[in-house]
């Protein structure tokens, strides 16, 4: 009995000199996994046009029913999106969202993707409803933060897109996996295709 006891004590004593496993959040941040599902962002084309065409497929795909979209015809003289219509209202209720990413899969134009930002605490239920003001990326490709004066806000995470679409062929065809099917976007949604399996295994 005594030797086991001493062995146990030796184990805990040794651990004192091992490196710590704690990440001192919020002082230091861990790199999120590539497919981390953070808050959403509405992307733009490089020319500044919005990608959203107001089709409401994301709202239809959403299992939590947290997305509300209202489309509108593009003004002829100053179109907002390349298509016929654009997302006039786009709201996501972050209190209901389960971050499943089905909206990202449903989007035919890759207008909605997810970032790596997960810090979304609010002091008011109204603030949890993200409107186009918070969701739509700025023309320079950066993403607006809910609280721009937050000293702890990690803007890096807002500009890191989640890698879900990269692994899935946009058309849903396996042969197209890793092939960029859509025009490259500014900022977060601009990425290189994932290497195919042979390259990765080599």
């Amino acid at each position: 009995m005594l030797t086991e006891l001493l062995k146990g004590l030796a184990v805990t004593f040794r651990q004192m000199f091992r490196p710590r496993v704690t990440t001192r959040y919020p002082k230091e941040f861990r790199t999120k996994p590539q497919r981390f599902h953070g808050r959403h962002v509405l992307n733009r084309y490089p020319d500044g046009m919005e990608k959203c065409i107001g089709c409401e497929l994301c709202a239809g795909a959403c299992p939590a029913r947290c997305i509300y979209v209202r489309g509108m015809d593009n003004p002829v003289d100053a179109p907002v999106s390349p298509g016929e219509r654009y997302g006039f209202v786009y709201e996501i209720n972050m209190l209901r969202c389960i971050f499943c990413g089905l909206c990202v899969e449903a989007c035919p134009t890759e207008a909605i993707t997810m970032t790596h930002l997960f810090e979304m605490s609010v002091t008011n239920r109204d603030d949890a409803i993200y409107t186009k003001n918070e969701l739509l990326m700025r023309p320079d490709g950066t993403v607006p933060h809910m609280f721009d004066d937050d000293p702890y806000a990690n803007y890096e995470e807002l500009n890191t897109a989640d890698g879900w679409l990269r692994a899935t062929a946009p058309g849903g065809v396996a042969a197209y996996e890793g092939v960029k099917m859509w025009q490259g976007t500014q900022g977060p949604a601009s990425w290189d295709p994932e290497p195919d399996q042979e390259t990765r295994d080599a």
């Binding site: 805990t12 004593f13 651990q15 004192m16 091992r18 490196p19 710590r20 496993v21 704690t22 001192r24």
Partner: peptide
């Protein structure tokens, strides 16, 4: 602190 050290925490 000591218990944290022994559990590799801070």
């Amino acid at each position: 602190k000591v218990v944290a050290d022994m559990q590799n925490r801070i």
